[in-house]
């Protein structure tokens, strides 16, 4: 049932602007404008033998079936304890493939957007991950720092 709903979500995201037409009346994770959200922990290898974990980070995924790319918005994330700010970071142009019970994502040398524009300092290297209707996990290198994420899907309102 969930998988079915999940693919309905994907189909809806293909339609991009199909705002209300695809909504359902059960406990679906389906989000009206094609966004699905996960909350989980971002773990950052500090390259000094320690790791920093930023808990309860929210990540929103948007799938564009026409372009066959996904977009990942990492909301209010910190990559180090001493980092004085949290950032919204958007990773665009992620490849995705429907595989088995979920979707796999991948990308390399993607310059994310943060603070209003391209943010080469955090260029994404070797992004790979798996998305299901209940879980999302990925690993990548963000600039010089290896980053992993493991999260659970949440109901969210679309913005």
């Amino acid at each position: 049932m969930k998988l079915k709903l999940f693919f309905r979500m994907l189909l809806c995201s293909m339609a991009l602007l199909s705002f209300a037409a695809c909504s359902d009346d059960d406990d679906s994770l389906f989000i009206e404008d094609g966004i699905i959200a996960y909350v989980g922990d971002v773990v950052v290898d500090q390259n000094d033998g320690t790791t920093y974990t930023d808990k309860d980070v929210k990540i929103e995924l948007t799938f564009d079936a026409v372009a066959n790319t996904a977009e990942m918005l990492v909301k209010q994330v910190k990559f180090a304890e001493k980092m004085p700010i949290r950032l919204d970071m958007t990773v665009k142009g992620i490849d995705f493939t429907i595989a088995g019970s979920g979707i796999t994502i991948a990308g390399n040398n993607i310059v994310p957007e943060a603070m209003g524009g391209p943010f080469p300092m955090y260029t994404i290297i070797n992004l790979s991950g798996k998305v299901t209707d209940s879980d999302f996990s990925f690993s990548m290198k963000c600039g010089e720092f290896p980053v992993t994420f493991t999260g659970k899907a949440v109901l969210t309102s679309a913005k």
């Binding site: 004085p84 700010i85 950032l87 919204d88 943060a114 603070m115 209003g116």
Partner: peptide, 9 residues
């Protein structure tokens, strides 16, 4: 917020 920046303090 428009920039996607949030200060801890």
């Amino acid at each position: 917020a428009d920039l996607g920046v949030y200060f801890d303090n």
